[in-house]
Structure formats: structure tokens, C-alpha cells
Design a protein around this nucleic acid. Structure first.
Lengths: 342, 342
DNA sequence: TATTAGCACTCAAAGGGTTAGAGTGCTAAT
DNA sequence: ATTAGCACTCTAACCCTTTGAGTGCTAATA
């Protein structure tokens, strides 16, 4: 536990460095933050903070920069997050009201808004139920022996797949099959569908097994398609001027494996989580931080919403924004969910 | 028209510069390309080429770099494109056989493969028919007054939309409606659907107008969702070390407006087109070139396939790769199309 | 014991001057 | 028309100096 004054100084250093990206001298702290002590005292405290590993210096005669531990202490103990200003809240709400009432659109929009607001990269995965339920199936005749299966799951999620049959089937035949299955499978999960005790033709069995396997696949996915936005912001940060830094970061970002890195870190807990620097155990985002939160209806339908930026990031504003968009999305998802169960 | 020797020298300069990114001195040309003339002669020719605007020099005592006009002459008259080596062809084919038989997957994969092979950014738009046709519709009851409309168009394209009704409708009611519409609209385009002379209930009319508007919207789109891949490659090129260059390029790339820039340039012609430098009239890709081609079945189902890279790009290999993947995709699309018409 | 003024010391960054050599451009010879 | 030869140019690299921001230490002070 740091003394009040050390905390103040650490906070000042982090705040200043986040704003300016240049090492913070004792003089600046004395001038801008009314600690009522001299620069010498501040320097003494700074050298202690340095010994304890909170801050560091690029070279002997330079100001201080926060280290991982310093940032961590800052976000855990020193950060006070205000609510997002209501004009911004309204602006965001307005944007959400302008798009289709659809998970897909919401997710995409959330990523776009989030990245633009916090001026960093944003990732949002589509909300997903841990166990999907059958809604309806449709079979579209393509050729005699082939048809397209369109499967509608709960929350308006749609899957498609081609099926090849052993016997020629007309569209009329297919309607009979889909009618029967629609009645039989209504609102079931994939286990219930597999376990279904019902008199079925071989065609019907085939279709049903395709349905079950699609649903199982959907359930198996840890997370749904992530949307990524705002790569340009993070790359324009001064810390990514080096070419190697940049390309290793881009590699992780572009194939969206950020999500793979993040997922294991995120349990099912609520609330905003902040991952700083090498806590992520991933070389390529060594000097990045992540502000991430789960949104949606717990245990029913949820996704991830996160920001990736340099450690030197406006945590207060970022957390406020993530928190707000998270609650907004949760509201929308829960509305959607309410509608979809009957 | 340039003399043979000037052509040889221009070609040598372009080839060398593409390979090394450093201005090409006369000595290198004399050494590596057997022109059987002295460096002095080459210098004379170079100064002529410079006067004519084909090449330029960063400063007086430096070697030469190709200018836009030089590149253009190179790709138009000097480029000999070999077919892609058959091992690479097989590799690509193999990759395509591993994914779902689906436009969406193919498009995504094409972008990924293309960008990886040519080590530059690749854009592929999903193939799209200029006029879509109705295949089948499905109505899924969500609530008493609301249902989800799932519309299947030709080539297995799926659209979805919520509809709110004035009267409460059960799933049974909806089945009746969709059955009727499926028979009525079968294989029609949106104009035919609008013009349909048939006794319809008000509910049916409402659903039908939603269908027609979805189809019209689909037709109106100039191009379908583009997939973009390989931003990392283009950004790791030395010409994008400057921060402003980078961010202006990223801005264009990230919101996929590259496609908006490209589309007007691409008519309906066949074959690979190369757009060099400011031919694109777009500041942010001033020193980029684009190798682009239309794929699919002309007039029936087509999309774009292109590479964006620095002007200093392996045009021969890039053109060969674009050409090959283009033909492969065209084959797949045409197969799909054959299957889907009955 | 905590604070502070004062000052020597350090070091990066900026500036200036020099040098090396890569490459051209010109001239005169072939 | 070609080429050898050479003077000229300009960058990149190196080194040296200067500057001043900022620290770290010491000794005085409260």
C-alpha cells in the first residue's frame, strides 16, 4: 500500500504520460498538481517509486514513465471513472436507433462507435447463446438430388448448408419434410433433437442429423464472429512507429486472433476488466492494454466488447465508454431475447 | 514508341527497383543485364528516358527510379506474364476444396490466399447477380404481432428482416401465407413480383411488399460485401514508413472504400486491369497500384478480385495470381450457377 | 525526521563540420 | 554511336561540440 502522497505522484505521472507520451519530470508534477511540496521532495518520492518498480526512466537524466506495475496500481486503486457525458450517450443511442434491429448490425455498429470514440481498436463479438434452440427449418430445392437447408435458430440466427440426397426430391416433397420437422423440433436444443423418439423416414432422419450437427457446431463455438474496427487509431500511436512492432501487432489484429487471446482471460464474470501489458502473455501486444467486458444476458445470450490500445491509454474515458456501450447492448440483447421467447 | 534498347533499360530499372527499392545505378544495369554496352551509354539513354518522363532521380548523383509513366509503359508493353507454377495452382485448388461449397467462404478464402501469395492487400467482393430472383420465403413467428421473414434468393443468398403485423398471427397462419407466396413468386425478379396480378390478403400483400423491397435493395447494390485481407503486408512496405502516409492509407482500407474507388474504374470488361498511381485520382493511394479483374459468369453473376500494393510491385507474379484465382473462382461460380437453375 | 535549496552531474538531442564514396554528367577520344 | 576518363554533386555516416532539461546528492533548515 502506497502513502497518499506517493499515490498522488504516481497518479500525476500516469495522467501526464498518458496525455503527452513524454517522460514526466518532477517539475511538471509540482507545477500542475498542487501537492504543496518542492520538486526535490517529489524527486525523492519518485526514486522510491522507481525502486518499488512502479515507474522507470528511459535514461538517468530523464523524467519518469509508468511501468506495467504502475499502470496496474493506477487502474486498480487510483482510477475514478465518471459516467459518460449525456450528450455522448444520446449520440450513441441515436446511432443505434438508426440501424436495423439486428444483432449483426448492432455488433458491427458497436465496434465502429467504440473505436471511434476511444480512438483505439475495438473488438465486439456477436452475442451468442451457450445453447441454441431450433426455431424453424426450410428446404429449398436446388436440383433433383440437392437442396439448400436454411435453419433459423433462436434470436434470429440463421445457418445454411447444402444437402445431397440419394433419391430425387421435388420442392413439394421437401415441404412435407420441413413441415414435419418444424413440428417435431420446435424449440428444442440439439440434444433433444438427437434424442427425439419419432417415426421418421430416412430422408427426414438425414435432414435432422444435419440440423443437429449444425446446432452442435454452433454450441461448440466459444464465441461468434468478432467485428474489429479502428486499427488505424492504434497504429497511429507513437509507440508503433517501429516497423516490427507494427507488423507483429497487425498480424494479431488482422486475423482477429486477439479474441483468441482474450477469451481465456474472460470468465463469465460481469463488469469491465482491464488487462495491462504482458498480463496477456502475448509478445505482440506486450505494450498494449485491453479494456474488456461481457455484455448481454448472463447465461442466456452474451458476447464480448473490448478495446485494445497502447498501455498509455485514457483508461477513465475508455472504461466509461465500454461500460456505457456494454449496458446499451445488453439492453438491446435482452429486449431481443424477451421478444423471441414465447 | 521506345527503341529496343531503351525498353531494355527501362525494364531493367523497373525490375531492379521492384526488387530492391533503391534507386538503380547504370552500373547495376550493365552488370546484371547483358546489354553489351558501357555504363556511359546506359547513362545517356537514361537521361533521355528521364527527359521523356519515364524515370526520375531522387537527387542529382543518385540512380534512377521509375515514375508513374515508366511503370505504365512497363506493364503495358514490357511485362511478360507467365502462368502460375502448377504446384501453386494445386495448392490453391486444394485450399478451395477444403472449405464449404459457398460463395461466402470462397470469397473470404480468395482474399486470404491472394493477399498471402502476392504479399499485398487483397479485396474480393462476393459475386452478385445484377438481378436477383425469388427462391423461397419463410416466416418465423416471434411474437403475436411480429415475425421474422427469411428470404432465400438465387445462388443461395439469404436475406432476413423483421415484420410487424396489425393482427396477431400464429405460426400456422404464417405457414399459409408463406406457402401461398412461395407458389406465387417462384423464380420471379422483383419487378415481376410487384406486377403480380393475384388475389391476396392484406397480410400477404404486406409480406410481398417487404420481399419486393428487399430484392430491389439487393439489385440496387453495385457490389456485394467485400472481403479485405493482408493490410499487414502493404503496411510493412518501406514506402509506408511515414506516419501520415500510413494513416491515410489505412483510412481508405479499413472502411473498405477502396472498393468505391475501384468500382467506377471497372467496367464490365473481362481481363486483368492494372491501375497505376494517380490514375486512381485518389490522394491516399497515390503511390499504390491496383491489379484487378472481374470474375464469375458475365452478365449473370460476377464480382471483383483485386490486389492493392505499392507501385513497386511484382506485377508479373501478381497478374498471374489474380488471373489464376479469377479463373478458379469463375469456375466455381459458374458451377454453382448451373446447379441453381432448374 | 521530513523537507528543501542549491548545485554538480548526466545524457539525449540538435547542430555543424568533415569525409567517403556512390553515381552522375560531361568531354574528348575512338 | 560509343566509350573511357574524370570532375562534380550530393547523401549518408561519422564525430565532435553544445545545449539544456532533469536528475541525484548534499548540506542546510524547520
Amino acid at each position: 500500500m502506497l502513502t497518499k502522497r506517493k499515490q498522488d505522484i504516481l497518479k500525476a505521472i500516469v495522467t501526464e504520460y498518458i496525455g503527452s507520451a513524454i517522460p514526466v519530470p518532477s517539475e511538471t508534477i509540482a507545477r500542475k498538481y498542487n501537492l504543496n511540496v518542492s520538486t526535490a521532495t517529489i524527486r525523492n518520492e519518485m526514486s522510491l517509486l522507481e525502486q518499488e518498480g512502479y515507474i522507470g526512466k528511459p535514461h538517468t537524466s530523464a523524467g519518469s514513465v509508468p511501468l506495467d506495475i504502475g499502470y496496474r496500481y493506477y487502474v486498480e486503486s487510483l482510477l475514478d471513472v465518471k459516467e459518460l457525458p449525456s450528450e455522448e450517450q444520446f449520440l450513441i443511442q441515436h446511432l443505434f436507433h438508426q440501424v436495423e434491429r439486428h444483432l449483426d448490425e448492432w455488433t458491427r455498429l458497436a465496434a465502429a462507435i467504440l473505436s471511434r470514440m476511444v480512438r483505439n481498436a475495438a473488438v465486439v463479438t456477436m452475442a451468442k447463446a451457450p445453447r441454441c434452440r431450433f426455431r424453424q427449418v426450410e428446404l429449398v430445392s436446388i436440383q433433383q438430388y440437392m437442396s439448400l437447408l436454411v435453419l433459423v435458430l433462436n434470436e434470429a440466427k440463421i445457418k445454411q448448408q447444402f444437402i445431397t440426397f440419394d433419391t430425387p426430391l421435388t420442392q413439394e416433397d421437401l415441404w412435407v419434410v420441413s413441415n414435419k420437422l418444424n413440428r417435431a423440433c420446435s424449440n428444442s436444443n440439439y440434444l433433444e433433437i438427437i434424442g427425439l423418439q419419432q417415426e421418421l423416414s430416412s430422408i427426414e432422419k438425414q435432414v435432422m442429423s444435419v440440423i443437429a450437427s449444425l446446432m452442435k457446431m454452433e454450441d461448440t463455438l466459444e464465441y461468434a464472429e468478432p467485428y474489429l474496427s479502428g486499427i488505424r487509431h492504434i497504429l497511429s500511436q507513437p509507440e508503433f512507429n517501429g516497423a516490427e512492432r507494427r507488423s507483429s501487432l497487425l498480424e494479431v489484429l488482422e486475423d482477429k486472433s486477439v479474441v483468441k487471446i482474450l477469451m481465456p482471460k474472460m470468465g463469465r464474470e460481469e463488469g469491465v476488466k482491464i488487462i495491462i501489458g504482458d498480463q496477456s502473455n502475448e509478445e505482440s501486444i506486450r505494450d498494449c492494454s485491453i479494456v474488456i467486458s461481457r455484455y448481454g444476458v448472463p447465461e442466456v445470450m452474451s458476447g464480448l466488447l473490448g478495446v485494445l490500445g497502447p498501455m498509455r491509454m485514457r483508461y477513465d474515458y475508455t472504461v466509461a465508454t465500454v461500460r456505457y456501450i456494454c449496458s446499451l447492448l445488453s439492453g438491446l440483447v435482452s429486449e431481443l431475447h424477451e421478444q423471441h421467447r414465447n
